[in-house]
């Protein structure tokens, strides 16, 4: 077997959207109170990374950034077949925006090796920005394929299909390459028993665990703390306001002409935001 591809997958632990999580006064999410899970979008990235490994050979390394409990999702990636994982955990990272996050991840990638492929989820369910992947690619100076819904490799190049409005593009890219994977890619296969078995064995042996799950900090990767966290973030959440619970409180529209009813509904529900002006494709 040749050395194979050096594949990285970036994963994040996010609050479980099924549970009601509180917010800190500064508008960031109170991660202590929230139930946690692997960002659902990252499941597609993980599948893509594992697919690349199984098809073209190599090694998959998962990288996450977050407080120590984020190790849970790294263990989860190991259950699915990831070989090794890194957790960048550092208090000074708190309140990092996407730019500061991308900087920190850039330092991690520089620290651990030379990637051939980097897979990211399209976006996270807590941030919903879809920015970290491209910002990281910019830092690394790499080409990128965002919204990737399928790919294969030929002669060392990645042939990918990416979604665009009302269609798709076929692109051919050189490696190293960063790919953000759309949720129309293949869903993550179920964890394997052998993966689960491996994780249970690691969980019993802290020394063995450290060989496969590395917890690292900013100093170790040589990152400038002033460029991370609140300090290194050019944006802040100035304030938030509740817009009310969705569901359960239906606004009824009745007793008028159809014309008036529809006008009322459009105004009340901002339905027009779903309508693309007719000058576009049709």
């Amino acid at each position: 077997m040749s050395a194979g591809l050096n594949i990285y997958v970036l994963v994040k632990q996010v609050p479980d959207t099924g549970s009601k999580a509180g917010l800190n006064p500064d508008g960031t999410i109170d991660r202590a109170k929230a139930k946690r899970m692997l960002n659902p979008f990252d499941r597609f990235a993980l599948q893509a990374a594992l697919h690349a490994k199984r098809t073209y050979g190599g090694k998959v390394t998962a990288i996450s950034m977050g407080p120590p409990p984020a190790v849970e999702i790294l263990l989860e990636t190991l259950e699915h077949g990831v070989d090794e994982a890194y957790l960048l955990s550092d208090r000074r990272l708190a309140a990092s925006d996407t730019l500061a996050t991308a900087y920190a991840l850039y330092k991690v990638l520089n620290f651990i090796g030379k990637p051939d492929l980097i897979f990211c989820g399209l976006q996270t369910t807590d941030g919903d920005t879809a920015q970290v992947g491209p910002q990281l690619a910019e830092r690394l100076g790499l080409p990128q394929v965002t919204y990737c819904e399928d790919f294969h490799m030929e002669d060392g190049k990645v042939h990918a299909r990416r979604i665009i409005e009302g269609g798709y593009q076929k692109v051919v890219a050189e490696t190293p390459l960063l790919i953000t994977v759309a949720n129309s890619y293949h869903p993550l296969e179920y964890k394997s028993f052998r993966g689960a078995y491996r994780v249970r064995r690691l969980a019993r042996d802290q020394e063995e665990m450290k060989k496969f799950i590395h917890t690292i900090d900013l100093d170790l990767v040589g990152a400038d703390p002033d460029r991370t966290g609140l300090k290194g973030s050019p944006t802040i959440v100035a304030w938030t306001e509740k817009v009310g619970e969705l569901g359960g409180s239906c606004v009824m529209h009745e007793g008028q002409s159809a014309h008036e009813l529809i006008q009322e509904v459009i105004l009340a529900s901002a339905l027009n935001q779903f309508l693309v002006p007719s000058s576009s494709t049709k």
Partner: peptide, 20 residues
């Protein structure tokens, strides 16, 4: 898909804030 592909690259290059 285009704006969200391009904007983060610009923001990262200039290290300026971007809201999606």
């Amino acid at each position: 898909t285009t704006g969200r592909d391009l904007a983060p690259r610009i923001s990262a290059h200039f290290e300026t804030g971007l809201t999606a």
